[in-house]
Lab assay of single mutants.
Amino acid sequence: MALNTPQITPTKKITVRAIGEELPRGDYQRCPQCDMLFSLPEINSHQSAYCPRCQAKIRDGRDWSLTRLAAMAFTMLLLMPFAWGEPLLHIWLLGIRIDANVMQGIWQMTKQGDAITGSMVFFCVIGAPLILVTSIAYLWFGNRLGMNLRPVLLMLERLKEWVMLDIYLVGIGVASIKVQDYAHIQAGVGLFSFVALVILTTVTLSHLNVEELWERFYPQRPATRRDEKLRVCLGCHFTGYPDQRGRCPRCHIPLRLRRRHSLQKCWAALLASIVLLLPANLLPISIIYLNGGRQEDTILSGIMSLASSNIAVAGIVFIASILVPFTKVIVMFTLLLSIHFKCQQGLRTRILLLRMVTWIGRWSMLDLFVISLTMSLINRDQILAFTMGPAAFYFGAAVILTILAVEWLDSRLLWDAHESGNARFDD
């Protein structure tokens, strides 16, 4: 018995066209964080690309023209004298008006014999932002004059995390709450300039795509075929072959399989920071003279006294001054041990922890910024005066060393310790 099946006739004509040209192939790229070699397709503007294995951002879609970056830099340069030299806060102490600005706080630190601690604050609040705007201006002028731009481009990517104007702005709020127990506070004209400078700096850093600047100024022929001998440069993120001198053909720094002496430098910085954190938390970090009496505060006791007036601000200072430094030390110690013992479990967790400490590390400088600003506000000789204690130097040095330890660690070593050939990683 035959089955009668109805015929289905399409209502619209289906047209099949042959592909007349070869589909576009992607360029081969190595991930600078996990060293995976993959094919990167062509990316349009405002599109980002991520590593298929570790999800690290390979290409950032946010990109401004150099002219727009230069305009932002010149605007920031105009704001800087007002943000640093004009009063941020006014207080009335014992019937006398006192003005506080950024430069005055750094000068008070240096004047009291601790120039190293003052230079830490100076670099993060004044030096690094000033280098940022002058570097962008150098790129703008240098591109037109045919100057060598490689050193500036190499420095810009590392400079971003040292620009800490946003953290200093939080420190202004913390210092205001600490001082309000002794005097009446009012915002100064410099505060508005400083807030504007923070906003412009944040926007500029978020749109400063150094890798795209490398592509514009020093374009290189990408690798179009897969080759395990391809290496990625950690300076400019170019994937290719080393030249005859073993250097990256684009930025001219040595092109090595792994960062040289990464573990040794990381261990040295980490152990030194552990040693410095002990006096930083045991010795007094601030000293207040009130009517001839002397009151010393460690980091913890200062947080407890701050909690009596504002528990939320005390929580912020606790996280930045105690929780973050010790968390960074514990995480980095764990990561280094996992590399030495070739741990194969929990790779995803370790990668996330490394990215976390990379982002939060700079916030530990908050305590030094609060001390710097408070020193310029309260300084009335023996009637009422505020000065920093010996722990300030140890704390600042420990924070900087932990930042350097994270920067010096080559994250690809975590993958080397893991089993080879993993296309995915999980716990």
Rank of each mutant, 00 (worst) to 15 (best):
M375T: 14
P52D: 07
R256N: 03
I14W: 12
N379P: 01
S308V: 12
S305W: 01
W214K: 01
Q112S: 12
C34P: 00
E212Y: 15
F122K: 07
V16Q: 14
T11M: 13
Y28F: 11
L271I: 07
L373A: 03
R355V: 12
F425K: 15
L79G: 05
V399H: 01
R216N: 06
T202D: 14
L401F: 07
D410Y: 00
I311M: 11
T110A: 06
Q382K: 02
I19M: 10
L336S: 06
I311K: 09
R97N: 14
C251A: 00
S135I: 01
W267A: 09
T327V: 14
L276Y: 04
V125L: 09
S309R: 04
M109N: 05
S420K: 09
A183H: 10
L413M: 10
M304G: 08
Q112W: 04
G246V: 07
N209K: 08
V198T: 14
F74M: 13
D416E: 15
K57V: 13
I330Q: 09
L354F: 08
A312M: 08
I378A: 01
D243N: 04
R412W: 00
I43W: 13
V203Y: 08
C236I: 00
Q29I: 13
V232K: 09
N148D: 04
S308F: 09
V174I: 14
A268K: 00
S45N: 12
Y168W: 12
A49S: 11
Q33D: 11
L401P: 05
K265P: 02
D410M: 00
F333W: 06
I8P: 15
I316G: 14
A268Q: 01
S262V: 03
S135L: 03
V331L: 14
L191S: 11
L255N: 03
L208E: 11
L69V: 14
L130C: 14
G188L: 05
V324N: 13
A70C: 14
G61D: 15
V198Y: 15
L323M: 12
S376W: 05
T117N: 01
L169M: 13
T67W: 15
R216I: 05
L40I: 09
N422C: 15
L23T: 12
E228P: 08
S286A: 07
R158P: 09
A280R: 01
P242D: 04
W214T: 14
L145K: 04
P249L: 06
Y218P: 03
L368P: 03
D63H: 15
G396V: 02
L384E: 00
V399S: 09
Q264Y: 01
R17M: 09
Q108I: 14
D426S: 14
T374M: 07
R355F: 13
K13G: 11
R226Q: 07
G302C: 03
R68K: 04
N310L: 04
V275F: 09
R256T: 12
I199T: 13
G127N: 03
L169A: 03
I185M: 12
S309Y: 06
G188N: 11
L139D: 00
L213T: 13
M304R: 11
I8V: 13
W415Y: 13
L159P: 01
G173S: 04
R258E: 04
T110R: 09
D243I: 05
L197D: 02
C251R: 00
N143A: 15
Y182H: 06
A100V: 10
T201F: 10
L78I: 02
G389C: 01
A18M: 11
L384A: 02
A49V: 09
P390S: 09
F123Q: 02
G315S: 13
I106D: 01
V406Q: 10
P249R: 12
T334E: 12
V232T: 15
V102D: 01
S119R: 01
Q55Y: 09
L37I: 10
M147E: 01
P52H: 15
A128M: 03
I91H: 02
D416N: 12
S273L: 03
G173F: 10
